[in-house]
Amino acid sequence: MREKYGIDAPGVVRTFAALGVVLTVVSGFVYALANAWWAYVIATVLLLTALTLLTQSLWMVYSSLVGKRRVWERALADLPLRGDERVIEVGPGRGAVLVTAARRIPSGRLAGVDIWRPQDQSGNGREALLANARAAGVADRVDAHDGDMRQLPFPDNDFDLALASLAIHNLPPADRAGAVTELARVVRPGGHIVILDFEATAGYADALRAAGASDVRVSGLHWSMHPPTRVVTAEASRPSRTAS
């Protein structure tokens, strides 16, 4: 059995593709019937718009199937991992990032927490995540939980590493800082938080700093994904040293 991770934001991809095809057909009709310069201009604009939409839909498919995992492989490679960490990912969907992390952390234990919305990823569901974990040979170390990233069902300091990939932006803007604070809460002092998203990353960084995290960094844009993304990394707060 092969791993099958689906497409992120499938409704958006379908809409872009459908509109691109329709506008291509319409522009062809306008070109065929044009008998004035302005008609050719309209046809050209329609065709360019169609090509833009089709390009975006193909870019999003590439982003889901290839680009996202490449960005995460680099992000995880940059962390000082031992290989036996406890890892949590919020919004793992069908598990592309969680399985990538499991391969990077061969003796670790990983948990995915999601509400499994179909509009976020095609075929989204906890069983799809577990099926991909089995196909990748890491199912014995991966658990799937129903839950909300704003109220994680875990105690403080329970994980060494927390991940979020294209997940937090799905929350109402007023709830995003709380979700980031939850990630920081469940990570032990000295552990790490890594968040990938295409919007609100500066706000995530501010929320991590407010939660006491250190070494908070926001990467440049990663153009292998559409929309282009940034990676926010931080180290969870350590207890302050007091003089004896």
Rank of each mutant, 00 (worst) to 15 (best):
R103F: 03
A111H: 12
Y5W: 13
W223S: 09
G91L: 10
I88F: 06
G125K: 13
G83K: 06
A179P: 02
A96F: 00
D160N: 14
R185V: 01
V87T: 12
L208I: 13
W116L: 09
V21R: 07
G83M: 06
D146R: 12
V22A: 15
S64D: 03
P172K: 10
Q119G: 02
A111V: 15
I42W: 08
W59H: 08
G191Q: 12
L48P: 04
T44W: 02
D114P: 05
R117Y: 03
A75H: 09
A243F: 05
R209Y: 00
G212N: 11
D84P: 02
T44S: 14
N124D: 07
L76T: 06
D78C: 05
G108Y: 08
P80E: 10
V30T: 14
T24R: 09
S237G: 08
V61D: 05
I195N: 02
V26I: 15
G203T: 12
V13W: 06
A202D: 15
A205E: 04
P172Q: 05
M225V: 15
W72A: 08
A210S: 14
A136H: 09
I195D: 00
A9M: 06
T55D: 10
E73K: 15
R117C: 00
H222I: 01
D206Y: 01
F154Y: 15
D146C: 01
D8P: 00
R241S: 05
M60T: 04
E3T: 15
V90L: 13
F16Q: 11
L98F: 02
P173V: 10
D140V: 01
S27Q: 05
D84H: 12
I195T: 00
L58Y: 08
T233I: 01
D156Y: 04
P106T: 04
E73T: 14
T233S: 13
R14I: 05
S244F: 13
V66D: 07
L196G: 14
